[in-house]
């Protein structure tokens, strides 16, 4: 999965979304969205609150399947091969390939080690040394190893908020996902913890493709390679981040990124 193509300016697509509609019961929340997530890049979803950013994000790992009455139309194609919204694909299969980090840190009421090992255990992995290696690798990748390696057996809730969120990232990383979804991962954190997480994500894109929902325009500008602007359930514009922030094609996008509304 390691694929370095920094020389290519236009990275190959990892995920292609075409004509995506999503309904909560009768209410249409996503309207005809088309989007490409380039491989090993960070794509940011921005837009005023209630515009459907999080709803769109949660389509990528079929989180909406957990609740009754939700309906998808259209396609989200992974690696140009499979439509993960297909009825024949089990949402669990999708979630085994697509990781997610939530808005608020949500560690399980288990030890630090068990939190990170959870995804592997869920997959039926029994090999103890393999699990231990994977946990260490994931904790190192999420820059938490040095802080917790001497207390892996402690409960996860003994960590600070920022550490908990990095633990959740480690939890998502341990199973080698191809795409990780971040749902406003720093909105519950202080500025220093936010900075740590951002640095971390920047390093992660060597391994994985990242889609992040953020309400902070600065964060999108600092962090992402591509930015998509959503408004009232529609995808108004999607381009390289510097284009969106410096010379967006649409007036509404320009107004939003310059802080005129939102």
């Amino acid at each position: 999965m390691i694929n370095i193509d920094s020389t290519v300016s236009q990275a190959p697509p990892k995920v292609e979304v075409s004509n995506l509609n999503f309904y909560y019961g009768d209410k249409q929340a996503i309207k005809n969205v088309n989007l490409v997530l380039p491989k090993n890049k960070i794509t940011a979803l921005i837009g005023p609150s209630g515009c459907g950013k999080t709803t769109l994000l949660r389509c990528f790992n079929r989180m909406h399947d957990l609740y009754d009455g939700n309906r998808y139309e259209g396609e989200i194609v992974l690696d140009g091969q499979v439509n993960i919204l297909s009825r024949r694909i089990d949402p669990i299969e999708v979630r085994m390939r697509v990781g997610m980090v939530f808005q608020r840190p949500n560690p399980f009421p288990k030890s630090i080690f068990e939190n990170v090992a959870y995804g592997l255990r869920v997959r039926g992995e029994k090999n103890k040394s393999f699990i231990a290696d994977k946990v260490e690798e994931a904790l190192k990748a999420s820059a938490l190893w040095d802080e917790v390696n001497d207390r892996l057996k402690d409960m996860a809730f003994t960590l600070s908020g920022g550490q908990q969120q990095r633990l959740c990232i480690a939890r998502a990383l341990a199973t080698d996902p191809e795409l990780i979804l971040f749902d406003e991962p720093t909105s519950a954190l202080d500025p220093i913890a936010t900075r740590n997480i951002e640095d971390l994500m920047d390093g992660l894109k060597k391994q994985v493709t990242i889609l992040i929902v953020t309400h902070s325009m600065q964060q999108a500008a600092r962090l992402s390679d591509y930015t998509a602007f959503m408004y009232l359930g529609e995808m108004l514009e999607c381009d390289r981040t510097e284009v969106i922030f410096k010379q967006a094609a649409q007036l509404r996008t320009r107004d939003y990124v310059s802080g005129q509304f939102g």
């Binding site: 989180m63 939530f102 608020r104 009421p109």
Partner: peptide, 21 residues
């Protein structure tokens, strides 16, 4: 529900979520 979602997002089944989380 956040805990449940965390578990489902890790690829767990209903039983695994119910029993482990």
């Amino acid at each position: 529900d956040e805990l449940r979602e965390g578990s489902y997002a890790a690829g767990a089944t209903k039983l695994q979520t119910a029993w482990n989380v």
